[in-house]
């Protein structure tokens, strides 16, 4: 780690003003990626603005038919929230399966989606749920938010404040963990709202989270794991290949995980 300045605003207003003023600043929203990267000297921001002291960014509420989750809400809070468990048990399960207990208590939903790690769980989940990401400046539909590996629609100085997630549909997430890191080697989130189905895949794509259109079409006709039989899984050439999984294996796993996600979403 190199030396850096540390700021810990107490309000969103202060955070906004700091981000406008401080040069080369990084927002710390849990730090489960940023801090290890800084420790390894792979990132060296001149300043870090820690949002953990901003209470208005934390919390889970039901607002009408939506769940509203503050950006600084930890994975553990989402996983154990009675509201989330009742409205979207699949989302609680997704949050409860992120990393390990340490990561779940420090990492936050806002931090995770702002980083958009290609093997993170939330991006696939929020895509499939049709969530809306709210920032200090605007509202961004999840479908427009995740723009590629480690990249998002966020502008310079833009801070995620909350995530709005519609409830009432069906949702589940199935993850195949990398045996070493336990990140998603392939994770498939399946969401159904009315007749619209979204199948979002994380961990596998060479440019981060993506939607699997053929599966969405098949499941749109009949929302059943069997509908995926015979559907060709995404082409290996679009997928990651590393020492843990060839693209061919990842392609196969997308099919398996999608069927398991659909089965979980339709299970009583």
């Amino acid at each position: 780690m190199y030396a850096f300045d540390f700021h810990r605003p107490a309000t969103l207003r202060q955070a906004n003003s700091l981000i406008g003023k401080v040069e080369d600043a990084k927002i710390l929203a849990g730090g489960q990626t940023l801090l290890p990267t800084m420790k390894q000297r792979l990132a060296s921001p001149a300043a870090v603005i820690d949002l953990s002291g901003v209470p208005e960014l934390v919390g889970i509420e039901q607002k009408g038919r939506n769940l509203v989750i503050g950006a600084m809400t930890s994975h553990a809070e989402v996983a154990s929230s009675a509201l989330v468990k009742a409205a979207l048990p699949g989302l609680a399960a997704l949050a409860g399966g992120i990393g390990d207990p340490h990561v779940r208590h420090k990492g936050t939903i806002g931090g995770s989606i702002a980083n958009n790690d290609p093997a993170a769980d939330y991006p696939a989940g929020l895509l499939a749920l049709g969530a809306t990401i709210v920032t200090n400046r605007r509202r961004i539909p999840a479908g427009e938010f995740f723009t590629g590996m480690f990249s998002t629609a966020l502008d310079e100085g833009e801070i995620i404040t909350k995530v709005i997630i519609p409830t009432g549909g069906k949702f589940a997430y199935a993850k195949f963990r990398n045996p070493a890191s336990r990140y998603a080697m392939v994770g498939v989130a399946v969401g159904k709202k009315g007749s619209s189905v979204v199948v979002a895949v994380t961990g596998a794509g060479s440019d981060g989270v993506f939607r699997w259109a053929e599966a969405e079409a098949a499941l749109g006709k009949r929302f059943n794991a069997k509908s995926l039989d015979g559907i060709k899984t995404p082409a290996a050439k679009e997928l990651n290949s590393d020492i843990h999984a060839s693209a061919e294996y990842r392609s196969h796993l997308i099919g398996v995980m999608a069927r398991r996600a659909v089965a979980a979403a339709t299970a009583k």
Partner: peptide, 11 residues
């Protein structure tokens, strides 16, 4: 060494 951390070396 491709497996130089717990990200890639599975304990």
């Amino acid at each position: 060494l491709l497996t130089a951390s717990y990200m890639d070396y599975a304990m």
